[in-house]
Computed example of a mutant assay.
Amino acid sequence: MNFKRGSRDEELEINFIPLIDVLLVIIIFLIVSATFSRTSELQINLPTADANAPQEKPLTITVEVDASGRCLVNGKEANGAVVSDLSAALIEAGKAGPADKEPTIIINADGKASHQSVVNIMEASRMANYTHITFATQVNSH
């Protein structure tokens, strides 16, 4: 006689198939993400040259602006408040170099100079058709 109703003598088993499915998905995800991280880096070997640097220096026009807004173009006083006067001074300074090469405008602006005075220099450079503009900076020795 069997007094245990509904009870069977089957052993319990752990079903590994869902576990294997989850692990395969995780492995595929790791492989794909590892491939992307490796391709985002670029190995660049820059070329080297044994030739000397060209001796010809480009024409530069230095424009200095102090805290009060006074402008000097290559050491000569210019009216920085009027853009057309400043543009004429830049064109005059640009005549010192070769006609086929555009000069580089170097802006030396005081740290307390107004933003408008720097914008006036940039606008005057545009009016003179000078597109190469750079700003001079000073390295902190701290």
Results as ranks from 00 to 15, higher is better:
Glu13Ile: 13
Ile133Asn: 10
Leu46Gly: 01
Gly75Trp: 11
Ala51Thr: 14
Asp110Lys: 03
Arg70Ile: 06
Glu92Thr: 07
Arg38Lys: 04
Ser33Gly: 00
Lys95Arg: 14
Ile106Pro: 09
Phe29Met: 13
Ser37Gln: 09
Gly75Gln: 09
Ala113Lys: 02
Gln138Asn: 12
Val139Asn: 09
Phe3Ile: 08
Ala109Thr: 05
Ile17Cys: 10
Ala51Met: 02
Ser114Arg: 07
Asn140Lys: 15
Glu41Leu: 11
Ala109Phe: 03
Leu72Trp: 13
Ile31Tyr: 03
Ala128Ser: 15
Ser125His: 00
Ala99Met: 07
Ala136Ser: 14
Ala99Tyr: 07
Lys101Ser: 11
Leu46Lys: 04
Leu42Gln: 15
Ser87Phe: 08
Phe3Trp: 07
Ser87Asn: 04
Thr131Ala: 08
Ala99Arg: 09
Lys95Ser: 09
Asp66Trp: 06
Ser87Ala: 14
Gln55Ala: 04
Glu56Trp: 02
Gly97Tyr: 04
Asn108Ala: 08
Ile14Ser: 03
Ala81His: 08
Arg8Ser: 13
Ile14Glu: 13
Ile31Gln: 11
Asn108Leu: 15
Met122Asp: 09
Arg38Ser: 11
His115Phe: 04
Cys71Ala: 10
Val119Leu: 15
Ile27Tyr: 06
Ala53Gly: 14
His132Ser: 08
Asp9Ser: 10
Met122Gly: 12
Asp85Met: 04
Asp21Tyr: 01
Thr60Gly: 09
Asp66Asn: 15
Ile26Arg: 06
Ser125Arg: 02
Leu19His: 11
Leu90Phe: 08
Leu23His: 05
Ser125Phe: 00
Gly94Phe: 00
Asn45Met: 07
Cys71Val: 14
Asp110Met: 00
Leu19Phe: 06
Val73Tyr: 06
Ser87His: 00
Ala93Pro: 02
Ala96Gln: 10
Phe16Gln: 02
Gln43Tyr: 02
Ile105Ala: 01
Ser33Lys: 07
Ile28Thr: 03
Arg70Met: 03
Ile26Gly: 08
Asn79Phe: 05
